[in-house]
């Protein structure tokens, strides 16, 4: 397992995008994802691409690193593009390879879908690149707070999410330790028939479950000893506060939105 998973995708930094309130980022990206489906000509796509690229450059994260994160979706984008070239038959014939004709409409459609998809993935990955998982959780908790009125357990879910996130590195180490310990006792995880390899996971999971429950009991005890009793009246260590920069970015995004609707046909 690679080290990069220990803090997820997050890249530490101090750019404007990093310093934005998670709620601002979530809201803007949420609207971006919806609005991109309304783009219907080159200019409107251009406006959105400008916004996405501008956000990308402001993060000051290395471009090569961001592109590396997009690697798993390149395959889908190229596949869709080629599929469109083969299937769509609009417009005039541009050129033909081995008696296969490529239409101008197909090229346009393929490019449009690829661009749309790339922008979608780029924007959502900017969120996970510039925000720690824990502050995304905090942001979502604060945005869902109104749902408490209908007795939706917002605080409990956010607490569960934070606890889960906190235990990722711990349990990752634990898994590694157990698998080494069992390998030294002769468990073979890598070779043998499929069936034997599946069965070899049992001695890995038994101690993992037992220790997971032990850790849970210890944490529950520790939290109670410190007086935890539910979400009511609980104060926070990391408080979310909207800054001036949030207002500025909000207004800027709203302006982009207005420009966007003027460029549509």
């Amino acid at each position: 397992m690679s080290n990069s998973f220990i803090i997820g995708q997050y890249v530490p930094g101090s750019s404007i995008v990093h310093r934005l309130d998670p709620r601002t980022k979530i809201t803007i990206i949420f609207f971006f994802v919806i609005i991109i489906f309304f783009a219907n000509n080159l200019l409107s796509y251009g406006v959105l691409a400008f916004f996405a690229l501008l956000s990308m450059f402001t993060t000051k994260i290395k471009i090569s690193y961001i592109l590396k994160g997009l690697k798993p979706v390149w395959f889908i984008v190229i596949f869709t593009f080629i599929l469109h070239l083969l299937v769509t038959k609009d417009g005039e014939v541009l050129f033909s390879i081995f008696s296969f004709e490529v239409y101008s409409g197909a090229l346009y459609k393929g490019l449009e879908i690829s661009l749309r998809f790339t922008l979608l993935i780029l924007m959502t990955s900017l969120l996970t690149l510039t925000t720690t998982p824990i502050s995304i959780t905090d942001g979502v908790e604060s945005m869902l707070n109104p749902l408490r009125k209908i007795h939706f357990p917002v605080h409990e879910l956010a607490l569960m999410m934070s606890i889960s996130l906190r235990f990722i590195p711990t349990l990752m180490q634990e898994t590694e330790k157990i698998s080494k310990a069992q390998a030294s006792r002769g468990v073979d995880f890598r070779t043998g028939k499929m069936k034997e390899r599946i069965k070899a996971v049992v001695p890995l999971l038994v101690p993992l479950f037992v220790s997971a429950f032990k850790r849970a009991e210890e944490l529950a005890m520790a939290m109670e000893a410190r007086g935890y009793n539910g979400g009511e009246g609980r104060t926070k260590f990391r408080e979310l506060k909207l800054q001036r920069v949030d207002a500025f970015i909000f207004i800027f995004s709203a302006l982009i939105l207005v420009v966007f609707f003027f460029t549509r046909v």
């Binding site: 999410m161 235990f167 898994t175 009991e217 529950a220 935890y228 009793n229």
Partner: peptide
């Protein structure tokens, strides 16, 4: 532990972490 609800909540969170790690493998 005195409060079974908190303990249950924590156990489920940690099991979810285990599940997520198994998902990566």
């Amino acid at each position: 532990s005195k409060s079974p609800k908190l303990l249950k909540l924590i156990v489920l969170s940690i099991l979810s972490t285990v599940a997520m790690l198994l998902m990566l493998l």
